[in-house]
């Protein structure tokens, strides 16, 4: 199957089982370059599993996933290439606690992209400026607040100059007063034209920058559409119910 030039992610009939448990039941999704996608749905519906199949943190067992013209298969070189082209931000930040902020950011550009240390550090400083914490480069992650840590994690992912950014509930582990500082960075990133897949329940963010939204339930896409369509006139009962639950507080 070929991908047209505007499409950067194609998922066709993607299935995933954990043992006997059917976690993804035929997911279809096409993502265009520069698109911002928001994925939402109840806990356990397969949102994390799905975005983790895109950079092969989870292996799918049936169907097809193509990222920027490269099909995810057992070929290790394909996986390496796709991981270079996708950045990921996790709910729990997953910074490397034994490395400074600077080392966290430059490790992979130096080791994988084979940049010089000088070049990597220069870009790291730019990125730290972009996420609003230029003065923290030589601290350790444990010395930063949650919001600062998550912004370092975003800078770390961006340092590889990825074509796609995956976010798995990036603000769910944060104290309320820190959510905004992270969302601001993500909004700026979205406006700069980055292709983004974001699992989140921050509907304000979705309304502001999402191009399309996907509602997941029980391993399937129940409904998709623009934020306009989803918020104004959701077609499915399940979507309505879920939205009313999360918007009520």
């Amino acid at each position: 199957m070929l991908q047209d030039r505007d499409t950067i992610i194609t998922a066709r009939e993607v299935h995933k089982w954990y043992g006997n448990f059917h976690a993804l039941k035929g997911i279809d999704m096409d993502v265009k370059r520069r698109e911002v996608i928001v994925i939402f749905g109840p806990s356990g519906s397969g949102k994390s599993t799905f975005i983790r199949t895109i950079n092969r943190l989870e292996e799918h067992q049936r169907g097809q996933i193509i990222v920027d013209g490269i099909e995810l298969s057992h070929d290790v070189r394909n996986i390496e290439q796709i991981r270079m082209d996708t950045g990921m931000v996790f709910q729990q930040f997953n910074l490397f606690p034994h490395l400074t902020v600077m080392q966290n950011i430059t490790l992979s550009p130096i080791q994988v992209r084979k940049w010089t240390k000088e070049k990597a550090e220069e870009i790291a400083l730019q990125l730290l400026g972009r996420v609003g914490i230029p003065e923290q480069a030589h601290k350790y992650p444990g010395q930063l607040s949650g919001g600062q840590q998550q912004r370092v994690a975003i800078a770390r992912a961006l340092a590889m100059q990825p074509k796609i950014m995956l976010f798995d509930e990036p603000t769910s582990a944060l104290d309320p007063e820190m959510i905004k500082e992270v969302l601001d960075v993500m909004v700026e990133l979205a406006k700069s034209g980055m292709t983004m897949l974001v699992v989140t329940h921050e509907m304000g963010f979705a309304r502001a920058v999402a191009d399309r939204m996907f509602f997941f339930d029980q391993g399937q896409i129940v409904e998709s559409g623009t934020p306009e369509e989803i918020f104004k006139e959701p077609k499915e009962e399940r979507t309505k119910l879920f939205l009313s639950q999360i918007l009520s507080h």
């Binding site: 950079n55 092969r56 943190l57 390496e80 991981r83 270079m84 996708t86 950045g87 990921m88 996790f90 729990q92 997953n94 910074l95 490397f96 490790l107 992979s108 080791q111 994988v112 994690a153 770390r156 992912a157 590889m160």
Partner: peptide, 18 residues
């Protein structure tokens, strides 16, 4: 060592040895 450390490293493109 938490699983997240392995995942973050993989997601950044580091290979097993790195």
């Amino acid at each position: 060592i938490p699983k997240g450390q392995f995942e973050a490293a993989q997601a950044l493109g580091l290979n097993g040895a790195q």
